[in-house]
Design a protein around this nucleic acid. Structure first.
Lengths: 138, 138
DNA sequence: GCTTGACTTAGAGCTAACTCCAAGTATTAC
DNA sequence: GTAATACTTGGAGTTAGCTCTAAGTCAAGC
C-alpha cells in the first residue's frame, strides 16, 4: 500500500508518516525498486497503534522507546509493560483533570442558560407592558 | 497577593502568569505604587478558571476570546455560552478518544502480564527439570 | 548605607510535533 | 513521447505555549 493511500485511510498527512519514519518512530517501511514506500500489514498495524497513542497525547519520545523495545524481542517484555503502565497512569490522570473541567463547563453552561431564560422573561414582561399600554391606555 | 505567592498557591510559574497577562488572557492585575502586581480575589478566581481550562487543553486563543466577552458584560452571554458548549463538545470528543486508548493500553498490559506468567512457568519448569536431574538421576 | 532577594520589562530562545519547500525522479494517462 | 501527477530527499519554517535572560528598580534586614 502506497503512502497516499495510507494517509487517506488513516487520516494522517503523508508528511507526518514520512516524519515518523525519519525519526525512527515507525520502523523503515519496505520500498519498491524505484524507492517508493509499500506499507505492509505489519506497518499498517504499527501506524494504527501510533495513531491511537498519539491521539491520546502520548509523547513521540516514549512511543519511540517502546517501538525500539518491541524490535528487540521478548527479552524486553517487562520494560515494555512498565512503559505502558506508566503511560496508562498519566493518561488516567489527564482524563480525571479533564473530567473536572467538563463538570465545570457543564455547570457554567447551566448557569448561562438560566440567565438567558431570565433575560427572555424580562423581555416578555416588557412586551406585555407595551401591549397593555397600546391597547388598554385610557 | 504577590505573584510569587499566586505562583506557589496554584502551581503556575510566575513567567506564565505574567505571560497570560501580557497576551491579554488575564485582564491587567492591579499594581502597588512601585508597580508590583497585587492579585485581587477576582484575579485569583480568573487564574483558577484559566488553570482548569488550560489543564484540559482548551486553547489560549479561545479562552482569551471568552475572557474578552466576559469583560464586555451581559450582552455577550449567548456568545459565551456558545463558546463553552463548543469547547465542551471538543473536550468530550478528546476524552472519548483517550478512553479508547486507555482500553487498548489495558488490553496490552494484560497480554504482557500473561506472557510474563508464561515465561515464569517455563523457568520454573526448567528449574524443576534441573532439580530432578540433580537428585533423581540414576 | 549596603547587600540580598523579589519584583519589573522587552524581547530572545526553547520544545514538541509537525508542515512546507525545492529540486529531482518515477509512474501513469493520453 | 510527453504532460501531469505522485513519489523521493534534506532541510527550513511554523505553531502553541511557554521559559529564560539581561538589565534594571525596589523593599527589607543587618
Amino acid at each position: 500500500m502506497k503512502i497516499s493511500h495510507v494517509s487517506e485511510q488513516w487520516g494522517i498527512p503523508v508528511d507526518t508518516l514520512r516524519y515518523y519514519e525519519r525519526i525512527g518512530l515507525l520502523p523503515a517501511v519496505n520500498r519498491s525498486e524505484s524507492g517508493i514506500r509499500d506499507y505492509s500489514e505489519l506497518d499498517l498495524r504499527r501506524v494504527e497503534f501510533i495513531k491511537c497513542m498519539r491521539n491520546a497525547g502520548l509523547p513521540i519520545e516514549v512511543l519511540s522507546r517502546y517501538m525500539d523495545l518491541v524490535q528487540q524481542g521478548d527479552s524486553t517484555i517487562e520494560a515494555r509493560k512498565d512503559i505502558l503502565i506508566r503511560q496508562r497512569g498519566q493518561l488516567a490522570a489527564r482524563m480525571a483533570e479533564m473530567q473536572k473541567t467538563l463538570d465545570l463547563l457543564n455547570h457554567k453552561i447551566e448557569v448561562y442558560e438560566q440567565k438567558i431564560l431570565e433575560k427572555e422573561q424580562v423581555i416578555h414582561q416588557l412586551q406585555m407592558d407595551e401591549w397593555e399600554n397600546e391597547h388598554y391606555a385610557i
